[in-house]
Design a protein around this nucleic acid. Structure first.
Lengths: 202, 202
DNA sequence: GGAATTCTGTATCGATCACTACTGAACATG
DNA sequence: CATGTTCAGTAGTGATCGATACAGAATTCC
């Protein structure tokens, strides 16, 4: 029994969709949904507008897929951080991961999940709502992890997991804004270290 | 000796520039520089495009003046907060001010100084740079205030005023992002209270 | 009241937006 | 090789972008 591999008749695609999506992600990351014009996107992707529409549907879907790639690539530190054995380890790993991702010298400064579309006009409302959901999902996963920590005795019984998750999320988002403003990595890391020196901040 | 008040010959302006600027500020605040089209702006201002250009120059200058109005209006809590007698009072007042401003039910959610243009395309780079300077100015004023607190003995001699200012700024910006995502006021205030329960976070 | 000056609305500018019809080239299958 | 299918580039769609030319209306100065 072998997997059905029917040959797709026709001319094969002349570019790598993964790499093109990576390039598109970087443009959205740097300029936001509204600031990323189709001309700039396709130019960075190295393909024509026709090929982009054939491969990804439209600008909105391209953004959605670019966000997925962002989640599994530059933002994958969150998955790893949630596996840390203690809540303090989780919080520490999240903040250092955010700092590393938002201040990497070879990549856009800031976080695509925030500056991709924080406020927007009519044409970008769906992108904005997508990112609101993306950020809320991150918060929920952190909260759930902290709830587990309360159950395990890692956090005191009276600890408010939601409040702690909100605290870490707020710091993470604030760091992303600072990074977008050009604040350097070391300064942010020193600040994060100080913020977590008392844990939990009950 | 009386102030020279030469009569400006010609038809007087038919609208109140202050109120028009207030309306424009709200549009920029809600939709950002790029998301605020001229049509939407002039429609909200209640004037024609011609009148807008005659009164404010162009979109870029309109944004600059709207930001000034934002600084002196919704963002005026910072001036007051810096007058608090202690560094903890300053930090507390800043965060509660941010929360009040970014979650007011009758106004756009979030902070114009951030979502006005966090990431942007080519045409909005000047607006983006203007906001980077605006945020950095806020940071510098807080830092200077904390340096004073160190000199006064309000903060311990070894305290790093820059790091503390960065901490408060990061929380403030993070709160603004949360507010833009729809997080409610009470939750943010509870989080801010917890964040400042240990002060300074040395 | 006449002239000069400034405001306001209409209509429109060229440029760019996201998006697509069309043509021809490139490749897989039979 | 012949046929069918898909890709990619050119050119151009209507809509909207920010910004203006123009002409009529309104007000002040002389």
């Amino acid at each position: 029994m072998k997997t059905e591999k029917k040959g797709p008749s026709g001319r094969p695609r002349g570019f790598d969709t993964g790499e093109a999506l990576e390039r598109a992600m970087l443009v959205f990351w740097e300029h936001g949904y509204e600031g990323a014009s189709l001309g700039r996107l396709t130019s960075a992707m190295g393909i024509s507008a026709t090929s982009m529409y054939a491969a990804f549907g439209n600008k909105e879907e391209l953004f959605r897929k670019a966000l997925e790639r962002y989640t599994e690539g530059p933002s994958a530190y969150l998955d790893e951080a949630l596996k840390e054995p203690t809540s303090l380890g989780v919080a520490t790993a999240i903040l250092s991961g955010v700092i590393r991702t938002t201040t990497a010298p070879s990549r856009p400064q800031g976080c695509m999940g925030i500056q991709g579309a924080l406020a927007a006009g009519e044409s970008a409302q769906s992108a904005r709502e997508l990112l609101v959901g993306w950020r809320n999902d991150g918060y929920l996963r952190i909260r759930k992890r902290f709830e587990r920590a309360v159950g395990e005795g890692d956090l005191p019984a009276g600890a408010d997991a939601g409040l702690l998750a909100r605290y870490v999320t707020t710091l993470a988002h604030g760091i992303a804004v600072q990074a977008a403003s050009g604040v350097c990595r070391d300064e942010l890391q020193a600040m994060a270290d100080a913020a977590l020196r008392v844990w939990p901040p009950l």
